[in-house]
């Protein structure tokens, strides 16, 4: 199992002002699944992704990712977990503006290997940016920047890829291209992908859709016959 959540709670604040962002989540996500987590704003989907990614800590419950129990991990252990087990793709790309596409990817690749330059070029080619290797973020379109961000996430070859609204800043066509790329990488490399979005249409391309509302899972279904990203309409 790639991810296993047992009665996971995440609460912000205390006493009467406490807000339960997640309220007793139970879910198992098998390795290699492409899972889309849907829900309106404030439903807890990003919180869930952050907990799985180890950038936030559960309030109670058990969370296991790639056989590593995240509950109660210290700062350094959590950093090591993020370095080895997960890759992030953010809505706003979060590229470092002073580094080229290759350097942005290499910086992260170097976390797990001695010289990540070849790996950086390899993954950038995988995402179709072989001709943009030395471009700085400001020279790239939004879609290209997000592809660099995906390459950066893939550079460490993490078993789990966490994508938070990866199409939120992109136009429709570019958004579909990015989703297609993520799906292709999932199929080719067998990575577990968890994609958070408020766009219900994207669920059509997933193996599984989990819908959250007010911190609880209100729907968890497998998609029998997912469509291709290029066929998505929203």
């Amino acid at each position: 199992m790639a991810v296993s959540l047992t009665n996971v709670w995440k609460t912000y604040g205390e006493g009467p002002t406490a807000v339960h962002a997640l309220a007793g989540i139970d879910a198992d996500i098998p390795s290699g699944d492409f899972t889309v987590i849907l829900g309106p704003s404030g439903s807890g989907k990003t919180t869930l992704l952050n907990l799985i990614g180890g950038i936030d800590d559960v309030t109670s419950g058990d969370l296991v990712v790639e056989d590593e129990k995240l509950t109660g991990l210290g700062t350094d252990e959590r950093t090591a977990f993020r370095r080895n087990q997960v890759g992030f793709v953010f809505q706003f790309f979060n590229l470092i503006p002073t580094l080229t596409a290759t350097e942005n990817v290499e910086l992260v690749a170097n976390l797990t290997m001695h010289d990540g330059s070849e790996r950086a070029i390899e993954v950038l080619k995988q995402v179709g940016l072989g001709d943009r290797l030395d471009h700085f973020p400001a020279m790239l379109s939004g879609g290209e920047q997000q592809r660099v961000a995906i390459a950066r996430a893939l550079a460490k070859s993490p078993p789990v890829l966490l994508c938070d609204e990866p199409t939120g800043e992109l136009d429709f066509e570019t958004g579909r291209l990015i989703l297609g790329l993520l799906r292709r990488l999932n199929r080719e490399q067998g990575q577990t992908v968890l994609l958070v979005t408020h766009n219900a249409a994207i669920g059509e391309m997933a193996d599984r859709v989990v819908r959250l509302r007010s911190g609880e899972i209100v729907e968890d279904r497998r998609i029998a016959d997912p469509i291709e990203a290029g066929e998505l309409i929203w």
Binding site: G53, I55, T75, D76, T79, A80, F81, R82, R83, N84, G87, F88, F90, N94, I96, L107, V108, L111, R152, A153, K156
Partner: peptide
């Protein structure tokens, strides 16, 4: 940038 680097596992 720092938050991103931390998120991807760079040590403080």
């Amino acid at each position: 940038e720092v938050a991103t680097l931390l998120a991807v596992g760079t040590e403080r």
